[in-house]
Design a binder for these strands. Sequence first.
DNA 1: ATTCATCTTTGCGAAAAGGCAAAGACGATT
DNA 2: AATCGTCTTTGCCTTTTCGCAAAGATGAAT
Lengths: 233, 233
Amino acid sequence: MAANKLDRSLIRNLMIFQQMSDEDLDNVLAMASVRQLPEGGSAFTQGEPATEFFCLLNGRLKVVQTTPDGQQVVVRHVNPGDIFGIAKAMRRTEYPATAVAIVESLALAWKSTQWEAFIARSPTLALNALQTVGQRLQDAHSRIRELSTEEVERRVAHAVLRLVQQAGKKTDEGILIDFPVTRQDIAEMTGTTLHTVSRVMTAWEAKGLVQSSRKKVIVIDPHRLYVLAEHSE
Amino acid sequence: MAANKLDRSLIRNLMIFQQMSDEDLDNVLAMASVRQLPEGGSAFTQGEPATEFFCLLNGRLKVVQTTPDGQQVVVRHVNPGDIFGIAKAMRRTEYPATAVAIVESLALAWKSTQWEAFIARSPTLALNALQTVGQRLQDAHSRIRELSTEEVERRVAHAVLRLVQQAGKKTDEGILIDFPVTRQDIAEMTGTTLHTVSRVMTAWEAKGLVQSSRKKVIVIDPHRLYVLAEHSE
DNA sequence: ATTCATCTTTGCGAAAAGGCAAAGACGATT
DNA sequence: AATCGTCTTTGCCTTTTCGCAAAGATGAAT
């Protein structure tokens, strides 16, 4: 499927493509192909040669690193408008992680060899890309700080609040995280075990902070959760 | 002090400036000023407005985030040739961390407002910058994985090996880490306490892996340390 | 309605790491 | 050589978190 058949306004709204001329955008889209990902499908896999890079149009992915002994760590999430899989831009020949769709998703894909042409197409595109990666670096540093200094409960609180911010949806019971999340998922986001996450969230439930069931989390009292995450003790 | 008085070959060797024309390099250097940092001095401080960005010429800095309650985390190190303090490129108005010289250091400094001109000066410069930031992101993700899945001893082993790689110097006793490192420093790099680091390293010393004294670390047996860091067992 | 796979909860004991406090060691300075 | 500030080590006890195992719950598929 050719990318230039897609809804233009959708694409225009993506931060990375703003301030580009129509013509440049046409050219960039002409190079792209479209990739549909079912839930659980992966855009690329850790260790594979990095032949493509992507931009997410809609849906949501998690980027997972697997350790040699099989433990998994979610290093970040990909939201609509994000570019991802730009291993080539870092002169890497292989993907350092796996990108898995956690809901059905749609992405644009370009050949890695087109990266330079892609960037050359517009100076603002390069600046935008740099800014995107820079923001990610900030986020990563925040997580390093959290993992280094905070105890499990606060880390889990942060993770849940982040999910709320990225995918929170108001319902009459509270703010629903709008895609399936298991205890295991949260454990992989916070560097702990599903058991510990379960214990923490059961305690929160008793305090009326959240309400959760299988693969579902609803935050009842974001403010108290925030206080818990920020102010130690 | 004007930057174009500096030794050119030194600057040419810095990865970020490679593939630039002499003329562009002249222009870029004309915009820069030179900053000397004594040991313990800081190039910028967390929370300050981000008025400048830098490129390290020689020496070594640590980039530290301080939590509200005063705990410190070393998020990364800056080595010669690295650009740092590019908060502006990420549309941040304040520095998110503090950069402290751990040995006497020398850096180039530009006004943040010149960032776009700096990038526009050469398309390869933008690509280089992107690659640099991308590499840092990879490193950050590795640390997130380590902090999430590894126990203290292995994290410390990784940190020490990284120091060896970045600043190892062969001596007849073993590989010396060529700048002052305290237990506290290593603790801040690995998300633990100086006590635990001390205990770990005392054990290593008994096994003949390292030899250390006040602010000094010598790795005697890098290979066994590597095995310890990599193979869980 | 029943079955089945998957996800979640919970109890118990073990291990890892932290916190505190005190003592020791080192090196720079006077 | 004596002093002083800083860095390091160590013992002891507490807390946090994990690991394992088993039981319970949920929802999709038949």
